[in-house]
Write a protein that binds this DNA or RNA. Structure first.
Lengths: 142, 142
DNA sequence: ATCGCACACGTTATACCATCACGCAATAAT
DNA sequence: ATTATTGCGTGATGGTATAACGTGTGCGAT
C-alpha cells in the first residue's frame, strides 16, 4: 500500500518519513525538529522521537541534511545542474544569518584537500561538516 | 574598545573566564558547557550562564573554539610549528569518534577555495565551520 | 564629587534539543 | 508458527542554551 506522492523516485518512505520530508521540502529555511513537530501535530505526530526517527532515516537516504551549526535540517537541494551520483558525500552550506536561506554546494577541491590532509595524518574521515555563516547576496545588498 | 585580533595575545581574563579557560586547557578532549560547570562548582560557579558568558568571550578572543558538531569547546591549540598569525579565521578540526581527541589544523587552500566560492556567489562569510568526524590514527590502528 | 554608562556578575526560570526504555503492530524469512 | 526486523507511539528524562531580572564596580564627563 504505497501511494507515492514524491516527485523524485526515492526509496519508499513511511508515512512519518514522508510527512517530515514534505515539511522540509515546503520550507524556505532550515527547520528544527520541534518546528517540524509543531507543523505536523494535525497529522497525528505528537512526540519528538517520531520526528527524530524520520530525520535519521532521511539523512541516511541522503534526502535531508543536518546543519550542525543550527541544530536544524534542510531538504537536500544541490544547485540545479549538479549530477546526482555521488554528490552527497561532501556537501557544503552557506547559511545566511539574516534571512536563514541556505545554499548547498560542493567544491571538489575542498573535499580533495581535506581528504589529502586526512591521508597524511592517518585520519579516517566518516563524515565532513562544512558550513559558512554570513550574509547572502540579497541581504548584503539591503 | 579593542579591535585586537591576535589569538595568543591574552587579553586580561576575568576570574570566570580564567577558570573556564583553565578547565579547557587542562582537558584532553572537548568539554561541554555543563561538564565545565561540574568541574568548577568548587570554585563557586553555579549556573550555566556563567559558563556560557565566559565561553562567548573566550571564543571572541580566539582562545577557544566551539565544535558545532559536538556542542562542545576546546582550547585553541593548533599544531606546533604553526605560525600564530592568521590561524583563527579558518581553523579545521578532525574529531575522533572513538577517543574524542581533536586535531586542529588549517588548510590554506581550503579556506581559499571557500572564499572564492563565496566571492562568486556574493556571499559574505562571517565564520566558517570545518569539522571532520572519523577515526584518528591511533584508534584506527587499534 | 556624582552622574551616567558600560560591563561583568549571580540567580531563577524557562525554552529548546535529543534520547532512553518500554511495549505493540506489521512484515519477511524460515 | 516462530523468529527477526523494522517502524510506530508514549512517557520520562537528560543535555544544551538563553531570557529576564537585578547587583556591583570602574571610569570618564560634567
Amino acid at each position: 500500500m504505497s501511494a507515492d506522492a514524491a516527485p523524485h523516485a526515492k526509496p519508499d518512505l513511511t508515512r512519518n518519513q514522508a510527512l517530515v520530508f514534505g515539511a522540509l521540502e515546503g520550507a524556505e529555511a532550515p527547520l528544527s525538529a520541534y518546528t517540524i513537530l509543531d507543523q505536523l501535530r494535525d497529522d497525528g505526530l505528537r512526540a519528538p522521537l517520531q520526528i527524530y526517527r524520520a530525520l535519521d532515516k532521511l539523512v541516511a537516504f541522503g534526502l535531508v541534511h543536518r546543519l550542525e551549526s543550527l541544530n536544524a535540517f534542510v531538504a537536500c537541494n544541490h544547485p540545479a545542474g549538479e549530477a546526482d551520483g555521488e554528490s552527497h558525500g561532501t556537501a557544503a552550506f552557506a547559511i545566511c544569518e539574516n534571512c536563514d536561506s541556505v545554499a548547498e554546494f560542493t567544491e571538489q577541491d575542498v573535499a580533495e584537500r581535506l581528504r589529502s590532509w586526512a591521508k597524511t595524518e592517518g585520519f579516517e574521515p566518516h563524515s565532513t561538516v562544512i558550513e559558512l555563516r554570513g550574509l547572502c547576496e540579497a541581504c548584503r545588498a539591503a
